[in-house]
Every structure is written in C-alpha cells, then in structure tokens.
Design a protein around this nucleic acid. Structure first.
Length: 319
DNA sequence: AACGTGAGCAACCGCCTGATG
DNA sequence: CCATCAGGCGGTTGCTCACGT
C-alpha cells in the first residue's frame, strides 16, 4: 500500500488567487518553522489554510519566498536566459538555478511573453535557436503583426517560392505597396505600420541593415523606384499564387538577417517614386522582383558573428 | 464613457520521476 | 519488486489591467 491521496482532489479546497491573509498565514507558518516546510501535503492543515499543499508550495516558491527578486529582467539576465535556453531547452527550473532570485515560473513567463516574440521577429526559431525556414520567417514576423488583412498574409505565404528571406521581405513590402489603393502614393497607411514609430503596431526593423550592407538604403530606393512601374490588377491577390509560381527564382545561397530588416518605413519613400506609381503602366511580377534578386547576400546564420551581433542588437529593441 | 483587444502574469492542470510502504 | 503517491516540472488557462477605438 502506498501513501494516502493528495489533498488537491478534496472537495471544498479553495482555488484561485491568494488573499493577503492567506499569504500572511502561510509566511508566518513557514517562518515559525525556521523556513523549513517539511511536508507540503500536511502544511495546509497545520497552518490552518484551506488550500492544497501543491498550491501552497507554488505560492511560496513563486511569490512569497523572501529571496525572490522582483522587477524587470536586466539585459544580462535576458542574455543569460537565451544562452541557457539554447543549451537546455525548456528546462525552466534548471535555467532558474542560474539566475539568483528568479523563479522558473517567472522565467517561463518572461520567455513566452518577451523573448520568444523578440526572437521570432528576428527570424530565429525560439525552439531551435536556428534561423527559421524561409516561409516561416515572414510568418513569424507577421504573427507579431496583428491587423494585417488575411488576404495579405496569404499573399505573403504564396511567396514561398522565393528562396531568399530578403526577397520575400522585399516582395511583401511591394505587395503592401501595391495592395494599398493601387499605388505607392497611397501606400503610406499600410506601410506606416512598418515604421518603428507606429505605436509598435508592427515589428520594428531588427538588425540595422544599413550598417551591414553599405548603401542598403540606396538599394531599397532603387528597388522601390523599380516597383513604381507596377500597378496591381483587380484580381491581383487571387492570381498572386500563380504569379509567384511562375516567377519563382531560386537563390539557394541567398540569405538575409531577417525579413523585417528589409522593410523601410513608408515615411522614407521618395515622393517621386510615389508619383511615378500613378503614371507608369502595369508590368509583370517578375519585373517587379528582378531587381530584388540583385540585392547581394548579406548575412548568414552560419556566420560565426551572427549570434554575437544578434544578441547585441537585441538589447536595443523595444519589446 | 463604454467597449474591445491584447499583454502580462499568477495559478492551475496534468504528467513524470523518485521515494515510500 | 511493485503499487502508489508527493513533489517537481512544463504547459496552459484565465484573470486583470492598460491601451486603443
């Protein structure tokens, strides 16, 4: 015969948020016993609490323990969590042993609400810590971009044939431009959401592309000027998949820091580009993308500096 | 002012492992 | 050795609050 059943399944045991009085009762009880709990199962009865022992243990270890460190995580702590997670995975309790005063629950929550999203925005799989598959990079970036039309997300997904993150990002940028009222001139509304200043409605640019590739901004402007030749047909979105299939260009070695890095705020569109979009005739999607193919491969996860740079850069990102 | 939405986080759920009888 | 359970752990839920419309 084993032990008697746990109290957690007893009827009438209180659940939900702890009151101040319950907290005080638990703390005083543990302090009376010199900080030693003994059996969590017997604790509620001994302390006069109508709680499950498990619930008491959780409340103590995650909230009431005197050595718990409250407040925001520091940059050093964040870096340490990322590094430890890369090595240990979701071993939150093990990770917590490396951060003084932080609980596994707190670290887990911080990971899920902050770090995970930040890595996704950077095109890094938070599970494997590897670069996301190309299709997923946009997905990851866009997952953190609520409010985009479903059709646009589908359109982005259909660009999977473009085998470069940068190309996809460029293409998406142009799609946004094109979808929005049929020309770059009127694209400010959608594209503005890519601006870091737009109330965080969209993910901000991640790595500073301009610092990685000389004249990156010039290349962007050149591309946008080229894009100005394009005006979407009415059935643009519905035909997009076949467009992408027809125009798929493989660049197996092409890579980029992130999708978001290639995005340029609408506010930086030259007015002449916008005006040109309203004048020039429609051209094929392949023409639209041809110049994107010429943007050089810039950055690689295989590059030994990737993580160093990424972590350094992450410190400057808003959450 | 009222309502909707999303982020953050405390707490619960359920599984796993080692301990116990 | 086996059955059973307590404690520990990771995943998930749901509440609260802040913010936008």
């Amino acid at each position: 015969m084993g032990r008697s059943p746990c109290c957690c399944h007893d009827a009438g045991v209180k659940k939900g948020p702890w009151t101040e009085e319950e907290d005080r009762t638990l703390v005083e009880h543990i302090q009376r016993h010199g900080g030693h709990v003994g059996s969590w199962r017997n604790l509620p009865k001994a302390a006069g609490l109508n709680r499950c022992g498990k619930s008491c243990r959780l409340r103590w270890t995650n909230y009431l323990r005197p050595d718990i460190k409250r407040g925001n995580f520091t940059d050093d702590e964040e870096r340490l969590i990322i590094a430890l997670h890369a090595e240990l995975g979701n071993k939150w309790s093990t990770i917590a042993t490396h951060l003084n005063g932080r609980t596994d629950n707190e670290i887990k929550n911080y990971w899920n609400t902050h770090i995970r999203k930040k890595l996704l925005r950077m095109g890094v799989d938070p599970v494997t810590h590897q670069r996301l598959p190309h299709d997923d990079v946009l997905g990851g970036a866009l997952a953190a971009a609520p409010g985009l039309p479903e059709a646009l997300l589908s359109a982005a997904a259909s660009l999977g044939g473009l085998n470069s993150v940068l190309m996809q990002a460029q293409a998406l940028q142009l799609l946004l431009q094109a979808v929005s009222n049929g020309g770059a001139a009127a694209s400010a509304g959608l594209m503005a959401s890519f601006s870091p200043a737009a109330d965080n409605a969209m993910p901000p640019p991640m790595l500073n592309a301009s610092s990685i590739v000389p004249n990156f901004q010039d290349q962007q402007m050149s591309l946008l000027a080229h894009a100005a030749n394009y005006r979407p047909a009415d059935d643009y979105l519905s035909n997009l998949a076949s467009f992408a299939e027809h125009d798929a260009v493989r660049q197996p070695n092409a890579s980029a820091p992130t999708a978001a890095a290639a995005l340029v705020p609408a506010s930086s569109f030259p007015q002449e580009v916008a005006a040109a979009a309203d004048r020039r005739p429609v051209q094929g999607f392949s023409d639209l993308l041809s110049e994107a193919m010429e943007v050089p491969s810039m950055y690689s996860l295989e590059d030994e500096h990737f993580w160093k740079d990424m972590l350094a850069e992450s410190n400057h990102l808003p959450l």
